[in-house]
Amino acid sequence: MSILVIAEHDKSVLLPATLNTVTAAAQVGGDIDLLVAGHDCGAVADAAAKIAGVNKVLVCDSSTHASDITENVAVLIQARSADYSHVMAPATTFGKALIPYAAALCDVQAISDVSEIVDADTFVRPIYAGNALATVRSSDSIKMLTVRTTAFELADADTGSASVETIDDAGANESIEFIGQMLSESERPELTSAKIVVSGGRGMQNGENFAMLEKLADQLGGAVGASRAAVDAGFVPNDYQVGQTGKVVAPDLYLAVGISGAIQHLAGMKDSKVIVAINNDEEAPIFQVSDYGWNEDLFTAVPALQEELG
C-alpha cells in the first residue's frame, strides 16, 4: 500500500486538517507520502517533513500554485496517481472540490467524507446528514477519498523525519484566473479545530447580538459558529456555518445559543463531546441531543453566563 496525502496549507502554515488526514492514512497502512503544492511554501514543506509517519514529502513550489486552483492540483495528482493505491485529502472545501475532480481524471469513483477506515478497500461514511452510516467497498484500483477530520486524531507534528523531493508542476489551466479572496480575520481559534465552540442561531435576532457570543467565546478561549439560519439572515459570514453542508465540528464543548436544532445543523455538531443548549423554546429539538439544556431566554442567559465566568 502506498498513500498520497494532499496537504492543505496557506503557503506558510500547514493546516491541522492535514494531520487528521495523515492519521486516517496511517490506519489504511503502508507508506505515506505528502504532496505540498504551493508557491514560496518552503516553511510548509519543512513542517510536513516533521509529521510522524510520513515517508516522503513531494513539494511542488510553483507560481502555478500561488492560489489553490482545483484543476491545477488535480492534474498534479493525476500525473502521480500510478504510484499510489490511495489518494486522500481532508473533507474541507479544498479537498471536497479537489478529490472528485482528480478522481474523474483518473476514472475513479471518489469516496467522500470517510469517518472510519474498515480496511484498505472499505470505508464508513455518513449519509443523510449523518442520520445513517454507509459502509462502502471500492473496487477501483486507486481509492480516492476525502476524510472527515473530526473522526481522526491529529498526527504528531514534531517527531517525523521524512525526505523531501521537489517535483515540477503539471501545467496551469488557462481558463481559470484567480482574482482574490475575502477572508474572515479572527484572533479566535479556527472553528473546525477549536476545543470550545459557541454557536448562535436565528434566536440571536441580528448580527450585532453576536458580539455577546464573541465575548463568551473569548472568555472560554473558543471559536464562534452559527446555524444556517443565522448565516442566511446575514448575521455572520458563510464561514461560520456549522452543519450538513457547512463545517463539521466536534469540540470538547459545543454551546448552542438560540439554535432550534434542525437535523441539518445537528449533522455538523452532534459528535461534540459535550453539548449545551440555551433556548427559550422548551420544545426545541436541540434539547434532545444536549448533555445540558437551559430553557431560558438567551438575552438573560448569556449575560448571566458571562458574569459567572468573569
Binding site: Q109, I111, P126, G130, A132, T135, V136, D140, G293
Partner: peptide
C-alpha cells in the same frame, strides 16, 4: 458501479441529558 454498499446502519444515538 465501482462501489458496493456493504451495509447501512443507524449512527450511535445521543441521549438527552439534564436541564439546568
Amino acid at each position: 458501479n465501482r462501489m458496493e454498499v456493504v451495509q447501512v446502519t443507524e449512527p450511535p444515538a445521543r441521549d438527552a441529558g439534564v436541564m439546568v
